[in-house]
Structure formats: structure tokens, C-alpha cells
Design a binder for these strands. Sequence first.
DNA 1: ATTGACTCTGACATTAATGTCACGGTCTAT
DNA 2: ATAGACCGTGACATTAATGTCAGAGTCAAT
Lengths: 131, 131
Amino acid sequence: MALKIGELSKATGVSIRSLRYYEKQGLIAPARTESGYREYHKFAVEQVKTIRLYLNLGLSTEQIAGFLHCVLLNKEAFCNEVLPVYQQKLKEIDEQIQTLVRIRSNLDERIQSILSERIDNESMEGTNDES
Amino acid sequence: MALKIGELSKATGVSIRSLRYYEKQGLIAPARTESGYREYHKFAVEQVKTIRLYLNLGLSTEQIAGFLHCVLLNKEAFCNEVLPVYQQKLKEIDEQIQTLVRIRSNLDERIQSILSERIDNESMEGTNDES
DNA sequence: ATTGACTCTGACATTAATGTCACGGTCTAT
DNA sequence: ATAGACCGTGACATTAATGTCAGAGTCAAT
């Protein structure tokens, strides 16, 4: 009935290394056999998939730890810790997008500038570069 | 006439630590006094600002090293190494933006979902959460 | 000559999640 | 009981640019 770590890894596609890491970060707390092996209950599969879901949203293990115990039992809307984390993350992502878009524009202008200068000089041959 | 590293740092706003790092990465090669002090010529101010410009475009010191010697002497359009780096970076940035936009949408949906569920339950008091 | 400001090098820290390795114990099938 | 597959912990590596510290040498002004 209980899963060993290798079985959970295969069932979830998450590496053993990462499962141990999640445990150290307080995201999952398997029982132990007498000999020290981790024993995951079958719900752990869903639990790990939930952790992956939040990690894929760009949340840190620390942030996830702040509400995971609640969302595993309730709908997100019932967990007061979730909304502020989402809103904070949304803000960060908007800032990152803004930065990237600004860089993108700059880069694009430079590329267009180079291309147009090359077209201008396409008629004349014999130019060189790369000192 | 020559600048010491502290003077160049003040003139450019770049930390001494970073100036030494740029040197190690092959971006700038100051002369040395007999006693081992770095001696920058006055053009180094512009050179460092150029380095900062490219770093702010998100290029790595390694990428910058690939064309810096050329762009310090010519217009970008004359340096064949520049365009492929720009195009590669543009591609990466577009991918990053796509990823962020996708996460943003997901996050936004979740926030809206939480908010609407809360509005739905606004009339009924006495609910609780945070097991 | 001494002090204070400056410089040198080398090293360790930072971030976050994951990979990988070493060494040793456990379990299972034969 | 023994081989082979599995598991345990702990440690180091990864990335990239920068901060910071320690210990030592240099320079300029007094």
C-alpha cells in the first residue's frame, strides 16, 4: 500500500532527489519504516503533482509551504494565504515582462538598424570588418 | 592621465569588484604600474559604459567578449559577430516572454476564481478556513 | 617615518532547484 | 548467503555577476 521513494518518483515523474528536497523544505512528510526507508501513502502522488503545479507557476518551495497544507484539504479560495502570494507573484511577473519587453524593443531596433545599414551598403562591395 | 581602478569606478558607477571581473572575463585589459596597480586610459570610461550597455541588454560577458573589440572601433553593423548574438538573444527573450505570459494568464485566472468565489460567499458569514 | 586611503589577490557567499557521486545499509529472489 | 536493485545521508557542483572579507603591499601627505 505504501510507496517507496522510487515508486513515487516513477508515479509522478519527479526525481528522487527532488522528492527528498521537497521533504527538507517541509512540503511533504513521509512516514519511515523501521529501517529508515520513506513510506509515502498513495495520496502522495496527488500531493507531489500539486507541488509541481505550484512550482510551475513560479512559486518557491517556501511560498508553497505557506499554504500547501491548506489547499490539500480545501479549495484555494478557502485558504487565505494563497491570494496574497498569487498577487505578489503576478506583480513580479508583470515587472519581468515589462523589463523583457523593453529589452526586446531595444534589441529589435538594433537588429533592424544593422540590417538596414547592410542593405544600404549592399551595392558597394569590398567593405570589411572584424579588425 | 591614467586612471586608477577607484577613479574608473567613480567615473562609471561600476564597482571595483565588477571592473576586476570584466578584466578576468577578457572585456578590458588595463596596463599595470611597476607596483601592480591597474592603469586605465581615459577611453576606458566609454569602454566600461559600452560593456554595461550590453550587459543591460541581457548579454553575457562571454557574448560581449566575442564582439567588444570590434564594436569599440566600428559601428555595430560592421561587426559580423553582433547580429547572430542579437538574434539569438531576441529568440530567448521571446521564449521567456511567452513563458511568463502563459504563467501570468494561469495566475490571473486563479486570482479571479478566488475573488469570484469569495464574492459568491460574501452573504453567508461564519465560514472559516486555514485548517 | 607614520598614518590613512588606496590597491592587490584569493577566497567564500549569494539564489534555488536539481544533478551526481561516494559510501554504506536494506531488501529480495535465488 | 549472496548478488543486484533499492534506499539512506552528506557533500559538492551547477549559473553569473556581484558583494564582502582578510591579509598584505603602495602611495601621498605630514
